[in-house]
């Protein structure tokens, strides 16, 4: 997932009468589930909303390397280290396709990176939480990628063609990530008492931040309606969150871990688990930059970018010299 609180660039939904002919043709395509492609006409607000959403998603993949990278050098076996490297490599690859999908909307990757580094664009709040013990790496795969998959499976049907196709490809890899995460945490939950303690600690700390990944509750989600009408968003935040809880609670029970929220309870009437809301004031604080890792994560990305300037300049200068030499030879 990794896109939350996307401010839809519009002043509300227009009725058919208020739409121009172009807008009506566009909306008809959406309603008929015909994908919008880069060269098709699209409302400016649709374009801007998608740039925000896909850009935030791409940034999340990139920043998401940091909490996992935090444990690559301490992975406890060669196999776990190899799996984690493969996963982080996939995440960076997702960042790459998503930036490419955003570029089809007329914004360059450099512009998007600039907006991330200057704080104008966000990444998912989840990556502002720390990874403190090895079980966190399992929990990130299982809970965080698990939450992401729920959103992304829905987004495979999103109306913008390049985004939908990126989601289809990404979902295949994400399901491998979620599985490896669950296996890693299973080894710990069924391991020594210390390992079980690590697993419990990870679930306790990451449960509510994982719930926050779906964004604010529907009643406070002011931007959803237009995005749903444009099929940029397919399901509401609360629907997705419920789906995640229903899927995850039995997995926690199977692991023999304590539930991280005393109010989790099966509700026969609704056919769903009841659960507590995350602390939304904490969520808004993290979004504002006050999460435990916001400052460090952004500083790490800025440092990587600044320290890499000479590398990008050097390689660019070299390719220009080569091109000039080829021209001269022709």
């Amino acid at each position: 997932m990794y896109a939350q609180m996307i401010k839809t660039a519009s002043d509300g939904i227009k009725s058919r009468d208020e739409m121009s002919d172009e807008e009506r043709t566009f909306q008809d395509k959406i309603d008929a589930d015909i994908k919008i492609e880069p060269k098709d006409w699209m409302p400016e607000d649709y374009r801007r909303t998608l740039i925000r959403q896909i850009g935030q998603h791409a940034h999340s993949e990139v920043v998401g390397q940091l909490p996992e990278g935090n444990w690559i050098t301490r992975a406890p076996t060669l196999e776990r280290k190899a799996i984690l490297l493969a996963k982080v490599q996939d995440e960076a690859g997702h960042g790459l396709y998503l930036y490419s999908a955003a570029e089809t909307l007329g914004v360059s990757r450099d512009e998007l990176v600039e907006m991330l580094l200057s704080g104008k664009m966000k990444y998912s709040s989840i990556f502002n939480y720390p990874t403190l013990n090895w079980a966190d790496i399992g929990a990130v795969g299982w809970l965080v990628d698990g939450a992401a998959i729920i959103n992304q499976v829905a987004l495979q049907r999103t109306s913008y063609g390049p985004y939908s196709r990126a989601m289809i490809r990404i979902c295949k890899e994400e399901s491998f990530h979620a599985r490896q995460g669950y296996h890693a945490i299973m080894a710990m939950a069924f391991g020594t008492p210390e390992q079980k303690k690590m697993a419990q600690d990870a679930v306790n700390r990451l449960w509510f931040p994982a719930l926050m990944m779906f964004g604010p509750s529907d009643k406070d989600s002011v931007h959803s309606e237009q995005s749903m009408a444009w099929k940029i968003k397919i399901k509401t935040n609360d629907e997705l969150r419920q789906q995640f809880v229903d899927q995850t609670v039995p997995q926690i029970l199977y692991l023999g871990l304590d539930l991280p929220d005393p109010n989790i309870q099966w509700n026969e009437e609704r056919g769903h688990y009841d659960f507590s809301d995350p602390d939304w004031s904490e969520f808004f604080n993290v979004i504002k930059g006050n999460g435990p890792c916001n400052t460090d994560r952004l500083a790490a990305r800025r440092k990587a970018w600044d320290d890499g300037q000479w590398v990008r300049d050097g390689l660019l200068a070299h390719s220009r010299k080569k091109a000039a030499a080829r021209m001269a030879a022709e």
Partner: peptide, 29 residues
């Protein structure tokens, strides 16, 4: 090489470094 994770000069290099580290760990096994 794995120490570079998330800190490379461009995204393509993050991928290449992780990939190189992964190959080397696989050979180690």
């Amino acid at each position: 090489v794995s120490e570079w994770c998330g800190h490379a000069p461009v995204l393509e290099e993050d991928i290449a470094l992780a990939n190189t580290a992964l190959d080397l760990i696989g050979q180690t096994q």
